[in-house]
Nucleic acid binder design. Structure first.
Lengths: 329, 329
DNA sequence: CTGAAAGCGCTTACAG
DNA sequence: CTGAAAGCGCTTACAG
């Protein structure tokens, strides 16, 4: 036959020093038999798997999916396949073991997780010298992290509204102790403090009057509650775009004009910001830049393991649209 | 040491006939060293990889992502990990080869692809006896398929509007030759024919006046165009929810009341249907049922290969909301 | 330029 | 009940 396993292997790996006729013969045989090399045998021999494991908090929010799509695209460009798993609380151990058994070159976490769980996983991965990066969530001990500077994002929103003359703010869904909330509160406080305003005097939250949902209906309900109140705020800051749009509709249904009677702002700058009339002012997460930084940091670690811990903050970008305007006189 | 490779292997695979003390000793050693079995060695020995390859058309539309999330969840339940790749035109060969080299147990296609390309891939996979299923796209030769009956979905929309007394219909984004469009046209024609109405007489499309975008702005622009027309339709059927919501806003901006002056319907029943006022009547894709059927068909094939070709139609569900009402007198 | 041999990390008969 | 040996499908020195 003239087709020793060695020869076939050399053809498949484009190694030099083969007669063209031999190459052609091998290629033809491969074509005819539909032969596909077994990746498992390949990697057993030590070839890099060129695979990255991605742990997603969920696949149900547009920003998360946008990150996933972008990650997958960029990794592919660099020659990596991605293995994707949704991480439910408590499942991280199983998922990471699976990734490790598949000898992934690195693991990416996207979203917000139980801190201790991820910390434990990162320690396990360190044993195997498997690099990692956490996208979105600051504050995980020992974790390489890339995340949006949400404090700054919210500060810019408030600065923008202060600049428009607003002095009383309704907070929509921005209450509680979750990290994503506390970052936003910190941003609001910082901006107010810079203008010598007292947080408790100029902001108001009615979140407790409704069951927290973080969706349109929740925003609508919150807006409706504010309508009945004396001293209604002139600007409403929402935790996310969904709540903001719900609130915008709620205000309009009550006969208020946006932005003439009240301004509304969102957060995340999703596509739906373009849908209401007027369109929604929001804070862009800079997904592309986030993902690019994350992939760069990760590949750097794959190339030279044990570099020092990296924390990368992404600057948000305020996108001003029609839903925010001068405060009413 | 008393820790022969054989013994360790037996412990890891929960095989009977080991002394508890031995088991404990092995487990401790595994724990201490952070030993993780090499999946590649495992599968080389013939163990099933318990992995399914998923080819996505894209990850940028909510319905696609919903299917992915649901698929991933159901496969995990059944013990399968999923390998996800976005298929760009022309990349299918590379992606499928990669999946085959990883010895996936099956491949799932989600979305709409170039027919011949997928047909070629399915033929290649047949050589390896690797089962497949196509979700969403009917009409691929030799493909096991699960997809929504879009003809019927659109027929139900028209029946609903006819029942409300409408007799003139504006089509938004429903023009051209794409399969997803022609299915919808077939549904509209069927419903009209059943009521002895002539398609060309009672429907109108102004799609050609704008650059096709399938988004809010396109819907808004189309609605604006219809406003200026004599004999304005009383009902507007959109290709999808985005166009419908854009149109709804466009009509309202022109001073029309929905549904008193004009009805609007969408397609896909995404979450955004709940956002406008009034909320949008739409057609639900029954993602859960689609995915369940697909996974069932697939596992059936994995268990006994070479069963006959399976085509499964999913019944859509019309969801009536405030955007559709009685035709104006 | 091409082929025979060893070995990657496991599992599975088969001895002990 | 436990261990030594073969072999899964490749790649890579090493001979020829």
């Amino acid at each position: 036959m003239g087709l020793a396993r060695t020869t076939v292997s050399r053809v498949l790996n484009d190694q030099p020093g083969l007669r063209p006729a031999t190459i052609a013969k091998v290629r033809r045989a491969i074509e005819e038999t539909g032969f596909t090399p077994n990746a498992y045998a390949l990697h057993l021999k030590g070839k890099r798997t060129a695979t990255v494991g991605i742990c997603m908090e969920n696949l149900l929010t547009p920003p998360a999916v946008l990150k996933l799509a972008s990650l997958q695209h960029r990794l592919r460009e660099r020659g990596y396949a991605s293995l994707i798993e949704v991480l439910e609380p408590g499942s991280s151990r199983r998922v990471i073991r699976h990734f490790l058994s598949l000898r992934v070159d690195a693991v990416i976490f996207v979203g917000h997780f139980v801190g201790e769980e991820i910390e434990a996983r990162i320690r396990e991965m360190a044993v195997h010298a498997t690099p990692h990066i956490v996208i979105d969530q600051f504050g995980i001990a020992g974790a390489n992290t890339v995340a949006l500077d949400r404090v700054r994002g919210m500060r810019e929103v408030v600065e923008h509204l202060l600049g428009l003359g607003h002095a009383s703010f309704g907070l929509l869904g921005i209450s509680g102790t979750a990290r994503s909330v506390s970052d936003r509160l910190a941003g609001i406080e910082a901006a107010l403090a810079a203008h010598n305003l007292d947080f408790n005097q100029v902001t108001r939250s009615l979140d407790s009057r409704h069951v927290r949902q973080n969706d349109f209906e929740y925003g609508r309900a919150l807006a409706a509650s504010f309508i009945g109140e004396p001293k209604r705020p002139t600007a409403f800051l929402a935790l996310n775009d969904e709540i903001a749009i719900g609130a915008l509709h709620g205000l309009q249904e009550a006969g208020l004009r946006v932005p003439e009677d009240a301004s509304v702002t969102g957060f995340n700058n999703q596509e739906i910001c373009l849908m209401p009339t007027p369109m929604l002012t929001s804070v862009d997460q800079r997904v592309e830049e986030t993902v690019r930084s994350a992939v760069d940091l990760l590949l750097e670690q794959i190339d030279r393991p044990f570099v020092r811990l990296r924390i990368c903050m992404i600057e948000p970008m305020l996108v001003v649209r029609g839903s925010s305007g001068p405060a009413p006189k």
